[in-house]
Amino acid sequence: MEATQKSESARRRRAWLPWGLLVGAVVLATSGAWAGSRSISALVERNGQLEREAAESEAHVAELQALRESQSRRLRTLEQQHQAAQAALATTTATCTTPPDSAQVRPEPRRAAKASVRGKKVARR
Rank of each mutant, 00 (worst) to 15 (best):
E63N: 08
H60R: 12
Q5W: 13
A103P: 00
G119F: 04
H82D: 12
A103V: 01
A115I: 09
M1T: 15
Q104L: 03
E51A: 11
S41W: 13
R46A: 09
G24F: 04
A59T: 07
E8R: 10
S72L: 03
A35E: 13
W16R: 14
L43P: 02
L64M: 08
V26N: 05
D101K: 02
A10V: 11
A33D: 04
T93G: 07
S57M: 01
H60T: 05
Q65L: 02
K114H: 06
A94M: 04
R111F: 10
S9N: 15
R68G: 09
K121R: 09
S9R: 15
A123K: 13
A29R: 13
A87F: 02
A15R: 10
S39E: 13
A62M: 02
G36K: 15
V117N: 07
T95Y: 04
Q71Y: 07
E51K: 10
S70Y: 11
R110C: 06
A3N: 15
L67Q: 09
R38Q: 12
A42K: 07
K120M: 12
S7N: 14
P109C: 03
E63F: 05
L67F: 08
R12C: 15
P18Y: 00
R12S: 14
K6R: 14
K120Q: 10
A25I: 00
R111Y: 14
T97M: 03
K6M: 13
Q86E: 09
Q81H: 13
